[in-house]
Design a protein around this nucleic acid. Structure first.
Lengths: 245, 245
DNA sequence: ACACGTTCTACCATTGAATGGAAGGCACCT
DNA sequence: AGGTGCCTTCCATTCAATGGTAGAACGTGT
């Protein structure tokens, strides 16, 4: 036998290895990684050593495996969201200063909002973990803000396939939320993620008026002041969008 | 001929493709990417399509290639510096609040300081580009702070191979800077990177008193107040280190 | 309008790079 | 002392990867 009894290419395997790390886990043992990637140990070992040699992975002395610093560096230097994050950062800092709330920036990926940047509320323990985190469209204000400004076709497709695994939300409810968000120009969601918090997000449109991101804040229910928040967010979103092609 | 006339493995090629993006460039044409990665066009095309299929790259309609959002997500979720950044973030925010200066966090990689986190001075235009940026040890306060707390052997090896391409700095000068930094417990460097700025950095030690990072600020020369800065940085560095294993 | 250059995409016979079972080595248990 | 779990290396087998070639789809200048 040669070149994979299981019928997958080298590229497939490289991807499986990188994907094998569970969220938030930085270190894995060689054997465990081989298991997770469903690779024969010897194959996994060879592959990981190659990747490690190039710095994409970091194979420690005792068989501990991490993602490589070099990979982190390359990806962050050339990240597809680099321009967006650079444009958004000053405005996000402004909002954090003025409103003193958690600020976040998300893009749409599939049927989920992917958070690409985040600033924590001053004084609170930073919750940086949520960077690179995902939330389904229907339970995040950012997701709703993003989806409500997509094309009719995409929204229709989204609603067609929509199914809430928890079974608590129907497609009709989501349709209503999207319509409301589209009409108002912002999306809000209270107590869904966390019972004591309120999320508000507005779309960020690039120069061609295409919605490329959502800018949002998460505030304690008690401090909710929609009148103050929405204009601030919308102003910032326009400022960001003006810098994007 | 089969399996690479040039004698490199698939893994080599995957790495070359990812590394082919110049710093700060997010989009490349297929042909240009093939050139940069030194791959035959047809091979590059096949490889990139595979990677794109898995979301590590993103092959657009007109042959435009970007890094994939999925890759960014995976790397940032499981980044080797995740714990460090999470521990450091609140302290960095404190410093930014109290001192109103650019704050940065770096680790040592090879003979360079790799900046893993950064907060911009309030009011200044954010210079986020420097995240994932590198600076040689001898011309960055962070680099000096890091190197000055490494083992004797590593420092000796560093000094042995040291060579300033600009020819302005001798190994003896660097040796002196390192000794000074080691003795004082902080490193400073004035007007090297930018003629009007002063950089100060202190080491961050983990629970085993191993130096794992450097915490630093960059201040305008005019606002230089060493007496205020160093204690603040050292306090923060201790706070960060206490949370690291 | 036409010819030309450039770039993307697809095909397919050839072959050496990738494969993984087996065995060795090491550390740490019981 | 024997057992267990892990990392690491070896090597004959073979099919996945390769890249020259050619066609399609642009864009551009004459």
């Amino acid at each position: 036998m040669a070149n994979s009894a299981s019928g997958d290419s080298v590229v497939d395997r490289v991807v499986r290895v990188i994907e094998a790390f569970p969220e938030g886990v930085t270190t894995l043992q060689l054997t465990e990684l081989a298991d997770r990637a469903e690779l024969p140990l010897s194959s996994a070992h060879r592959l990981i050593r190659q990747l490690s040699h190039h710095g994409l992975l970091d194979l420690g002395s005792g068989g501990t495996v991490r993602l490589g610093l070099r990979l982190w560096e390359l990806v962050n230097r050339n990240s597809p969201t680099l321009a967006l994050r650079q444009a958004a950062m000053p405005f996000m800092e402004d909002i954090q200063q003025v409103l003193n709330q958690n600020v976040n920036l998300a893009v749409l990926d599939g049927w989920e909002a992917l958070f690409v940047e985040r600033l924590s509320r001053r004084g609170s323990v930073a919750n940086r973990a949520q960077i690179a985190g995902r939330m389904p469209v229907h339970i995040s204000s950012a997701g709703l803000a993003l989806m409500s400004h997509q094309s009719r076709e995409l929204q229709a497709e989204y609603l067609r396939q929509f199914h809430d695994p928890a079974g608590k939300v129907s497609a009709d409810v989501v349709r209503h939320l999207l319509a409301e968000a589209a009409q108002q120009g912002y999306a809000q969601l209270a107590g869904v993620v966390d019972p004591d918090t309120w999320g508000i997000a507005v779309p960020v449109m690039n120069g061609k008026r295409k919605t490329v991101a959502a800018l949002g804040v998460v505030v304690p229910l008690a401090e909710m002041r929609l009148q103050a928040l929405v204009p601030a967010l919308q102003t910032a979103a326009r400022g960001i969008g003006r810098q994007l092609v």
